[in-house]
């Protein structure tokens, strides 16, 4: 038998995306290798969610290429998982929600059952296994989404603000699950608005602003001394939209010209 093809690296080349006549992602170039946890930050509407969906293949880019090392569409999809800000649960029991994607992957029933049990107990959802998933609280659903992702043993896990609207305890539980999935060998790429969470989780930071990737740096350096002044302002909490007047946009254009 030949070695299973690794999914990573993921390469984005000159990627842009447009909707409603607006350019929402602009000339994005970057590459993701296996290993370090990547956290994407940036103000509301910067295009973070869109960026994740482009990478995950849920929306096609208008221009440019997004390529995985494993170029087979089906097998590369099966090696990824994504947790949405508001996960959608099927109108079935908690455990059936984990079974479903395992079945799509053609995993045997015996293995499905053991994977599901393991995932549920990891997420602390064991006692809810027969509950209808839709009646769980938001936090429980988020944990279930993580448990589902864990059971899939993905090589890459995308997370879109996984702890927005969770209480501190649930946030902690979700962060531990993310850590467990990372330790299992998954590359984590996530977005968050919680900068202290970014510091806790990230190995590297991507700063996205108005559809552009303005900075990419190791977490330490990013928070100590971001090179980009918009990133600097954002980290200090000074990047306020009502101050983003013409001046800043002119600066931005100048910077783009310098490159």
């Amino acid at each position: 038998m030949n070695e299973p093809l690794p999914l990573l690296p993921l390469t984005l080349k000159d990627v842009s995306f447009e909707a409603g006549g607006k350019r929402l992602i602009k000339d994005l170039n970057c590459c993701f290798e296996a290993g370090p946890r990547t956290v994407i930050i940036g103000p509301n509407g910067a295009g973070k969610s869109l960026f994740l969906k482009l990478c995950h293949g849920l929306v096609p880019p208008l221009e440019g290429q997004i390529t995985w090392n494993d170029s087979n569409e089906i097998s590369s999809r099966f090696k990824q998982a994504m947790v949405f800000q508001r996960p959608i649960m099927l109108r079935r029991s908690v455990s059936a929600n984990i079974h479903y994607p395992l079945k799509l992957r053609g995993i045997l029933k015996r293995d499905r059952i053991s994977l599901t049990e393991e995932a549920l107990s990891r997420a602390g959802l064991g006692r809810l296994r027969e509950h209808p998933a839709r009646v769980l609280s938001v936090g429980e659903q988020q944990k279930l989404a993580l448990a589902r992702a864990w059971a899939l043993k993905p090589q890459v896990l995308f997370l879109d603000e996984p702890t927005a609207s969770l209480d501190p305890a649930a946030t902690h539980a979700v962060e531990e699950l993310i850590d467990a999935i990372h330790k299992q060998g998954a590359k984590v790429i996530m977005t968050t608005h919680d900068l202290s969470q970014a510091k806790r989780i990230a190995d590297e930071i991507l700063f996205l602003f108005r559809g552009r990737l303005l900075e990419r740096a190791p977490v330490e350096r990013f928070f100590r001394q971001p090179e980009n002044d918009l990133a600097q302002a954002f980290v200090k909490g000074e990047l306020l939209w009502w101050r983003l007047g013409k001046a800043n946009r002119k600066n931005q254009r100048k910077r783009d010209g310098d490159k």
């Binding site: 969906k53 849920l58 089906i74 999809r77 099966f78 949405f84 959608i88 994607p101 799509l104 992957r105």
Partner: peptide, 12 residues
């Protein structure tokens, strides 16, 4: 409309 992204993400 509600499920598309989630289902496609799961591999359907």
């Amino acid at each position: 409309l509600e499920y598309e992204d989630q289902l496609r993400s799961l591999g359907a």
